[in-house]
Design a protein around this nucleic acid. Structure first.
Lengths: 136, 136
DNA sequence: TCTGTATTTAGACTAAATCTAGAATGAGTA
DNA sequence: TACTCATTCTAGATTTAGTCTAAATACAGA
């Protein structure tokens, strides 16, 4: 079963603060892939103290380094963030800009495809396209 | 056989200017994946007139829209550029930061892997890892 | 040659992210 | 409980990538 934000931070060795906890919870619960500013806006009200932009950036970098979250790079100049709770890739709906998680299980594993010279630590696939509209 | 920069611009319907030509040639000839600033530095001396930063950005955006070049997003906050002369993906050597082109032929084609609901226009794979050192 | 459109230029401007210095927090110890 | 020290957080200044603006230039078509 899945971990709570608190358990995840403990497991990954990240010292707990209310700011870190709230930001982690926010990312674990949303299906969006928010930017730092969007996270700041969405999270600030959940804290009894003011939340600084610098703290959001510091926290996001700390969480990325610890492997709790991932950076999502789908468009130039904006970094988005994503809880890293399962192995997945991304599909970008070019019309709406919406980003959808694609579980690794839907794709062949290509980690070894490059041969011995390339020691692949991780890889990420980004698809761009249209979402077929379901309405008839 | 492969096209010259001039032929490529004509084929893609991009109006020719010396700035566009020189930037396209620069990207076609390098194995690096330069940023806009690096392109500006590398190209300015090849023109008889001063080259403005704005022109570099305008040109790069024009060439991306026309499909002559691609944006390469491997690290937050910096957009790199790549001639789009063959279908390929990227491997990032995390030690040196070097980016290596990976021909599509080395990987299985996963365009159809997501099923009918996802109309994939394009996709890109980015690998992160170490390059095995050849020296014995 | 003339005219009108597209492109380029320099520099101002904007937005994302980092840095800095001081204040607050919190764990460990007495 | 009170004290100390290291870590984290805050506000605001700073840096950097990229865009915008207005004027100058280049160039295709008549």
């Amino acid at each position: 079963m899945s971990l709570t934000a608190k358990e995840l931070l403990t497991k990954k060795g990240v010292k707990m603060t209310s700011q870190r906890l709230v930001i982690t919870e926010y990312l674990m619960q949303t299906l969006e892939h928010p930017t730092a500013d969007e996270i700041l806006a969405g999270v600030a009200e959940m804290l009894p103290v003011p939340l600084s932009r610098a703290t959001v950036y510091n926290t996001l970098n700390t969480l990325v380094d610890a492997g709790v979250i991932r950076e999502v790079l789908t468009e130039p100049g904006r970094t988005r963030y994503d809880a890293n709770t399962f192995e997945h890739h991304h599909f970008v709906d070019v019309k709406s800009g919406k980003i959808i998680d694609i579980p690794q299980e839907m794709l062949p594993d290509i980690e070894k495809a490059l041969g011995d010279k390339f020691k692949v630590h991780s890889y990420t696939v980004t698809f761009y396209g249209d979402l077929e509209d379901d309405k008839k």
